[in-house]
Design a binder for these strands. Structure first.
Length: 651
RNA sequence: GCCUUUGUAGCUCAGGGGUAGAGCACUUCCUUGGUAAGGAAGAGGUCAGGGGUUCAAAUCCCCUCAAAGGCUCCA
């Protein structure tokens, strides 16, 4: 044990060092190396992030946080929000402040600008001010304050939003932070000083309700991002530009995959021939794998009587936010566009008595559903009002849940692999253990299902995070996330256990003891929806789809009109081996034909001229790579099919 | 749904109270060419829609619709 003036500090590598009581993270860093000390942004003390300059008074486990730690970054950005606030106060006297947290990539501050408004043109001015203030190398100084003093301070300043925040705080836990001439109500922690901030960019400005409540006043939310090095800002900007180039809305138009029409309506995508073919190919790919995995295809109508959704509970929960019921002309009947496929599938389950021997029953449908999403929510293909789920419902016995989960995981991973998503993870969403009564279903069933999900994920080696309280009220779930080529995360497929619908539809099966039992239902969709999945696929591949999905796989480019017949002959021969594409018969030079094929992202160009026609060969050019040399038509077909075989294994 | 911004040719965009512009794409003609843009001519728009102000509106004002970025929502 240490004497009263010293404390023991445990470092992440497990080593224990002795420091004087009141040593700060910076002191500890300095004792390790000066270089480290220069980079320390904050200190994690017993799992809590502290200012690097805050004295540590007792034994602790610590970790020194730098730019390389997520928590280091978020501290850096939170401090940058204060710097932004200081700049705004200098530029717009009288501005009132809401809250200014760090976010995944940067930070924002919600402000009430009063008379002023901010637009893009003002960004450089704000950025310059921030950097000017940063160069003053001001320290972030932490100061605990009593509630009454805090109220006096912000009353005097006229910051009503801060006063509202203080109102919800407990006396004794309130701190202020000051850097330069700006003082903010803040829990912290912060980086030691503004000198760390070397590059700043205001990225966006938008409206946001005070405290995220629609009833409250709309404040101006100013988004920004900062870096400790100019170079990192440049990389960030490059990444943003790359993301813009990959935007599926832009590529969808350029590659003629889909379109929207005001006449048809908001959020209702029109699939153009190339997009439709891409989509059909994805569907048949999954259909084939599902058939092998024991799914049975079903088809159900796009509408269902209102009673169906009263039974399912959807009417009660979402009815007033849905497309409203359709009335029949004569009888007093109401039908609804289907927002989910599961009620229909439950009715299919009920078409005959089921025995425990029939289970699991796996019903699959590419089912198109309609949901009236808020207009401000619509976004390209990722959020639409009419979309097709690669849906299936597995009706099984409680003891089969785990096995079925494993099978679905295998199917989902097969889909990811075949489509080039190699960086994926999953989230297990379980009940809130504190609040079990808000969930439907028997306690023991939940336990069993949650256990089944956890075990199935572990058995398949999924990298998972577990979130308590994130389960749906009707059952726990497993959601898949993929990281795309730019490092962005997307939520894709989902597997959900459902105890509610079997109960609401009174589904039963006869057990081996001739008693009636209730099946468990599992909803699952590896793609999620065709629309959303294709959007993500477009962004991940930048429109350069895997060969087997590419709308046009080859472009045959005759050198001149003289070889048009030979070009057609090549085309027909290749078409016989299921290779699709076109012959570019335009009256253009070869350079132009190549350029156009490159721009429209055709994977293979086959150039045919005098030499090729004479020898029965093609000159092969791969998009983005260039000339691969000459092959016979048969050689090319084999080469081509081999490439596809290597991407897409059979399930 | 709310806030802010935007809407001009198929696409990308300039212009802006006084007869609508460019590049690309498209059509026709010339050119018959060897690995990322050959040449010429032509056609194409009720300036998102509706209303108002004005001698005159694509331009200014109002409303509607749609899009973008946020916020709230998401079976």
């Amino acid at each position: 044990m240490n004497d009263s003036s010293n404390i023991n500090i445990t470092l992440p590598d497990g080593s224990v060092r002795e420091y004087p009581k009141g040593a700060t993270g910076l002191d500890i860093a300095l004792s390790i190396s000066e270089g480290l000390a220069r980079n320390v942004l904050a200190t994690k003390v017993n799992g809590e992030v502290w200012d690097a300059t805050r004295p540590i008074e007792s034994d602790a486990e610590i970790k020194l946080l730098t730019w390389n730690d997520d928590e280091g970054k978020s501290t850096f950005w939170h401090s940058s929000a204060h710097l932004l606030a200081e700049a705004l106060e200098a530029l717009y006297p009288g501005v009132k402040f809401g809250t200014g947290p760090s976010i995944e990539k940067g930070f924002y501050y919600d402000v009430d600008l009063g008379e002023h408004s901010i637009s893009q043109e003002d960004f450089p001015k704000i950025e310059a001010k921030m950097l000017e203030l940063a160069r003053q190398k001001n320290e972030y100084i932490r100061k605990p304050i009593s509630k009454s003093d805090a109220i006096n301070f912000f009353t005097e300043k006229g910051d009503e939003y801060k006063l509202e925040l203080i109102d919800g705080l407990e006396d004794g836990s309130i701190t202020l932070y000051t850097q330069g001439s700006f003082t903010d109500l803040c829990r912290g922690p912060h980086i030691p000083g503004t000198s760390f901030i070397k590059a700043a960019k205001i990225t966006n400005v938008a409206g946001a309700y005070w405290r995220n409540n629609q009833e409250n006043k709309m404040l101006t939310r100013i988004y920004g991002v900062t870096f400790p090095k100019q170079k990192e800002l440049e990389e960030y900007i490059t990444l943003i530009e790359e993301a813009k180039k990959r935007d599926h809305r832009r590529l969808g138009k350029e590659l003629e995959l889909f379109a929207f029409s005001e006449k048809v309506g908001q959020g209702l995508p029109l699939w153009l021939p190339k997009g439709a073919m891409l989509r059909e190919r994805l569907e048949s790919f999954l259909r084939k794998a599902q058939l092998r995995a024991g799914y049975l295809p079903v088809v159900t109508p796009h509408i269902g009587s209102k009673a169906l959704y009263e039974t399912s509970g959807h009417w009660e929960k979402y009815g007033k936010d849905s497309f409203q019921p359709i009335r029949t002309p004569d009888a007093d009947e109401e039908y609804m566009l289907k927002p989910m496929n599961c009620p229909h599938h439950c009715e299919i389950y009920k078409t005959k008595p089921r025995s425990y021997r029939d289970l699991p029953l796996r019903l699959a449908e590419f089912g198109t559903v309609y949901r009236y999403e808020q207009s401000g929510e619509l976004h390209g293909l990722t959020r639409v009002r009419g979309f097709t789920q690669d849906d299936a419902h597995i009706f099984c016995r409680p003891d089969q849940v785990k096995e079925e989960f494993i099978r679905v995981i295998d199917l989902v991973l097969y889909v990811f692999r075949s489509l080039g998503f190699n960086d994926y993870s999953a989230q297990i969403s379980l009940r809130d253990p504190e609040n079990k009564q808000k969930y439907i279903g028997k306690d023991e069933d939940w336990d069993k299902a949650e256990q089944a999900i956890i075990e199935a994920s572990a058995e398949r080696g999924l990298s998972t995070v577990t979130e308590l309280g994130e389960a749906a009220f009707y059952g726990p779930k497993l959601d898949f996330m993929v990281r795309d080529a730019l490092g962005r995360k997307w939520q894709l497929g989902t597997i959900q256990v459902d105890y509610q619908l079997p109960q609401r539809f009174n589904l039963e099966y006869v057990g081996s003891d001739n008693q009636k039992y209730r099946p468990v239902m599992i909803h699952r969709a590896p793609f999620g929806s065709m629309e959303r999945f294709i959007a993500i696929l477009i962004e991940n591949t930048a429109g350069q789809f895997p060969l087997w999905l590419s709308p046009d796989q080859i472009a045959i480019l005759p050198i001149s009109e003289k070889y048009a017949d030979y070009a057609d002959e090549v085309f027909f021969q290749l078409q016989d081996t299921d290779i699709r594409g076109f012959v570019d018969h335009r009256d253009e030079k070869i350079g132009r034909k190549i350029r156009d094929a490159e721009v429209t992202k055709v994977p293979y160009m086959l150039i045919v001229g005098e030499k090729e026609a004479a020898e029965g060969r093609v000159s092969v050019r791969r998009k983005g790579e260039g000339d691969l040399g000459s092959m016979t038509i048969g050689e090319f077909a084999a080469y081509f099919q081999n490439e596809i075989k290597n991407i897409i294994a059979t399930f």
